[in-house]
């Protein structure tokens, strides 16, 4: 399923995403858009940590699902933060509007790569 071609395509998309984010900060000598990369890199972490802290199959125990819900809540928070942060900076004229567009597109490409990589890894782990 997840062959060599998939990995090559994903790495290309990841490189394009990083290129867009770095260009958006380097073209205007204003390095605030790099925060988007940090946001999207830590976005999958809460789900990963909380899924190891509780057992989702144990549906009789209601104490475990609270931790998982918290992880999902934090993931939703961080994903929207990656879009909201450049929009905020552009609205307050801290960065330019083209820099905002480039960093949002680049950030979404980076996050999409991370998520699809996780999906392929999960499918391989099931065998």
């Amino acid at each position: 399923m997840a062959g060599l071609k998939t990995i090559i395509v994903l790495s290309f998309i990841l490189a394009i995403g990083f290129l867009l984010v770095i260009l958006s900060s380097a073209l205007w000598h204003n390095y605030f858009p790099l925060l988007v990369v940090a946001t999207y890199v830590i976005a999958p972490l809460p789900n990963w940590i909380c899924s190891h802290a509780a057992n989702p199959d144990d549906f009789m125990e209601s104490a475990g699902s609270g931790v998982i819900d918290f992880g999902r809540f934090m993931t939703g928070f961080l994903v929207v933060m990656g879009v909201a942060l450049p929009a905020l900076l552009a609205h307050c004229h801290i960065i330019q509007v083209p820099a905002m567009v480039m960093s949002i597109i680049g950030g979404l490409l980076i996050y999409g790569t991370i998520v699809s990589f996780e999906l392929f890894f999960q499918e391989e782990a099931e065998f």
Binding site: F73, M74, T75, F77, V79
Partner: peptide, 20 residues
């Protein structure tokens, strides 16, 4: 649950936007 997190983040950043 994901949607709730997204909505909370949107509200939080609108508040931060007003402050900035």
């Amino acid at each position: 649950v994901y949607t709730a997190g997204a909505l909370f983040s949107l509200g939080f950043y609108i508040l931060i936007d007003a402050a900035a």
